[in-house]
């Protein structure tokens, strides 16, 4: 396709969409898009997310999004974490038996010294920002998913600038990351039962995934320790989720960086190339 044809098609699409929006607007006069008041459900979440006067129905975290993700709809997020886990495990299973060759090839040296030094500093800063985003998730915009995704940028940068052998030497191996990721998932599972365990030990009743005290379940985690807000279980969930997400993505990047010759040897080895 020639360049001018693409320009014409792109410009005509812009005009088409602009006219379509005009028709839509003319047909919808008197009806305001977006609406001027949010839905009733949104008002419930907005008024209940941090409400000391109604502690039985509040998540006691000023961040409404994190409160919904890990308190009001916490079980949903648990199952979505399970989907995440299965997708990563499926990728690992596709690459089973593939490992790095013992001796690094001479081309695996990475970029120049200046780039490497700057990158070392940058990786430290990326990890610091990621930790800040994850650990303050119950107070400001951020949380486990955001912090984990930000932290996963660091191993990717290291892969591009150094090499996969550098990561291997500095202790970022596939098995270790699998362990870290399992520790994160285990932490999420334990935090989900934390209040229930404490409640059963003291002879009361509680719900699974409980954070603050609820009717008929009077035990909850403290939402403030010495004046600092913790959001109860939200802080723990954010920390463990950041661990699981960043380690999970790091596994996939490590597998993606294995030289292609090695992988083909494993895929076709023994058979006559299909």
């Amino acid at each position: 396709m020639k360049a001018w044809e693409r320009i014409v098609i792109g410009a005509s699409m812009v005009i088409f969409v602009a006219l379509l929006a005009l028709v839509y607007t003319l047909g919808a006069l008197g009806y305001r898009v977006p609406p001027s008041t949010p839905r009733d459900l949104a008002m419930v979440y907005l008024t209940m997310t941090f409400n000391p006067s109604n502690p039985l129905f509040s998540a006691m975290a000023p961040e409404a999004v994190t409160a919904i993700v890990w308190d009001y709809r916490g079980l949903d997020t648990l199952f979505e974490t399970a989907v995440f886990f299965l997708a990563i495990i499926a990728s690992v299973a596709l690459m089973r038996g593939v490992s790095l060759p013992e001796k690094p090839p001479s081309s695996a040296e990475g970029m120049s010294l200046i780039v490497k030094t700057v990158t070392k500093l940058t990786i430290g800063m990326i990890l610091a920002v990621a930790a800040s985003i994850a650990f303050h998730g119950h107070l400001t915009p951020g949380g486990g998913f955001q912090g984990g995704a930000t932290a996963a940028v660091a191993p990717l940068v290291a892969l591009v600038v150094f090499s996969v052998y550098f990561l291997e030497r500095s202790g970022v191996t596939k098995n270790r990351m699998l362990g870290l990721r399992s520790a994160g998932l285990l932490g999420i599972g334990l935090t989900a039962f934390l209040v229930l365990i404490g409640s059963l030990l003291s002879g009361g009743t509680a719900f699974v995934f409980q954070n603050q005290p609820k009717p008929a379940a009077p035990i909850g985690l403290p939402w403030r320790i010495d004046g600092a807000l913790t959001g109860g279980t939200l802080f723990l969930f954010n920390v463990f989720e950041a661990l699981a997400v960043s380690a999970g993505f790091t596994i996939v990047f490590l597998l993606l960086a294995v030289p292609e010759e090695e992988a083909i040897k494993v895929v076709r080895g023994g058979e006559d190339g299909h």
């Binding site: 985003i133 951020g142 955001q146 995704a149 993606l256």
Partner: peptide
């Protein structure tokens, strides 16, 4: 939606293109 910005910038501007470029290279 600042929460979405924080998760979308590393994922869609950083990780997606890098992974797909890895795939194209291979």
């Amino acid at each position: 939606a600042p929460d979405i910005v924080l998760v979308y910038v590393p994922v869609a501007v950083g990780l997606y293109p890098a992974v797909i470029l890895f795939l194209i290279k291979k």
